[in-house]
């Protein structure tokens, strides 16, 4: 599932993500800089229970529309040569890429800024959900939320505008558990930060 036009490519796929193919997509004789963000799945634990698997679900037609809109906005704002945002779906083995964002531009600063902004907007808005399942018996999986999505907190979301949570937010909580009061909100983002690679320029 993908949409590609105007040097923008967004894709949702159940297959492993190809760094080479996506680098080739954004490379151009006009672009001296290519910046890539790779988000890789990590071996997280929850109440000392190891995560058995991470599975991503999406609403593809809406997520592709949202990703394309993010990519267009960021490409225009930072005057990028090309941009691609690729998210993997289904079960992603530990240590593999769940998301790739690549941006190219004539110089490095716009490429870094564009890739970073595209990632933040994607995590905030793209209609993709992560399920963590645990090794323990009888354990339910936990659907995570990137923002302050603790149940009971109303999220207002309209027409592509920022989601605003009305209630107390607990401050800067990236990856707050989408369930259970006892969740360790301060826990580090389990999706792990991938390798940032820059070439050229």
């Amino acid at each position: 599932m993908f949409r590609e036009e105007d040097s923008i490519r967004v894709e949702l796929t159940y297959s492993p993500l190809s760094i080479t193919a996506n680098t080739n997509f954004v490379k151009s004789p006009k672009a001296g800089a290519v910046v890539m963000f790779a988000g890789c799945t990590t071996r997280d634990s929850f109440n000392d229970l190891p995560v058995k698997s991470l599975t991503y679900q999406s609403y593809p037609p809406l997520a592709l529309r949202t990703l394309f809109s993010i990519a267009s906005e960021v490409k225009a704002k930072h005057d990028l040569t090309a941009i691609s945002i690729i998210h993997r779906l289904g079960t992603v083995p530990i240590g593999e890429e769940s998301i790739l964002i690549l941006a190219s531009s004539s110089h490095r600063h716009p490429a870094f800024a564009g890739a970073s902004e595209a990632l933040e907007l994607t995590k905030e808005k793209a209609e993709v959900w992560k399920l963590e399942e645990f090794a323990g018996e009888g354990m339910e999986g936990v659907w995570r939320a990137n923002r302050d999505g603790v149940m009971g907190v109303k999220m207002e979301k309209g027409d592509g505008e920022e989601a605003v949570s009305q209630a107390n937010t607990g401050g800067g909580g990236e990856d707050v558990r989408g369930r259970a009061e006892g969740a360790k909100a301060a826990e580090k983002a389990a999706d792990g930060e991938g390798a940032d690679v820059s070439v050229g320029d």
Binding site: I99, K123, K130, R147
Partner: peptide
């Protein structure tokens, strides 16, 4: 569609 808080990345 019912859209819960998202968690991509």
């Amino acid at each position: 569609a019912v859209i819960p808080p998202v968690s991509s990345g």
